[in-house]
Structures are given as structure tokens and as C-alpha cells.
């Protein structure tokens, strides 16, 4: 899966946000924590959910299963707003 090109990941200097262009069906803005920002970074490339979790485990210390749960939540949210292209993998 990968972020659709109609959704832009933008670093404002204080946070990472996901912003749709006018071509997207969604008009809001998604703001998240550091983990969410890292998930967005991963999704700039075509990756699986397991690969995202692996990348985050290498970056963050967290209790067993916590990162997988965060990734699941982020992916579900992104899927819900139609931000993911899942035909790639």
C-alpha cells in the first residue's frame, strides 16, 4: 500500500500533517503524533503493514505490540479517508 498522490505529507516544522489536494475526495487535515508521522513517511513508498511496523520498531522503543497497534490504528484511519492506494502490493 502507498499514499495516494492526492494526499501530501507536510512537515510544518512543529508537526507532520497529511493534507489532501483539491483532487482528493477528503477535505480535512489529519494531524498526528510522532508515530503517525513515521507511518506517513513509510507510506510514501509501497509497503506492507508489517514492513511499516518493522521500520517503526527499529526507530522507537515501545512495549511488545504497542507499535503494531499504533500502525493498525493509523492505517485504519488513512484507509477510512481514502488516502491509501492498496492495489500495488
Amino acid at each position: 500500500m502507498k499514499l495516494k498522490k492526492e494526499f501530501l505529507v507536510h512537515d510544518t516544522g512543529t508537526e507532520t500533517v497529511l493534507v489532501p489536494t483539491a483532487a482528493a475526495g477528503f477535505s480535512g487535515v489529519v494531524r498526528g503524533n510522532r508515530t503517525f508521522g513515521a507511518v506517513l513517511e513509510c507510506l510514501k513508498n509501497d509497503v506492507t503493514q508489517e514492513e511499516i511496523a518493522g521500520a517503526l520498531r527499529a526507530r522507537f522503543d515501545a512495549p511488545e505490540g504497542a507499535i503494531e497497534a499504533d500502525v493498525e490504528r493509523a492505517v485504519s484511519e488513512l484507509r477510512g479517508i481514502g488516502a491509501l492506494d492498496e492495489q500495488l502490493v
Binding site: K5, E6, L8, H10, V19, P20, T21, A22, A23, V29
Partner: peptide, 16 residues
Amino acid sequence: QQVYRPAGEEAARRTL
């Protein structure tokens, strides 16, 4: 929300 966000990807990036 108040700024027009272009449909074009490069224009949208510049807008941000």
C-alpha cells in the same frame, strides 16, 4: 481551510 488548495500536486506542495 481558508487557503485554496490546488488539485495539482506541485502547486499544492508550494501552497503548503
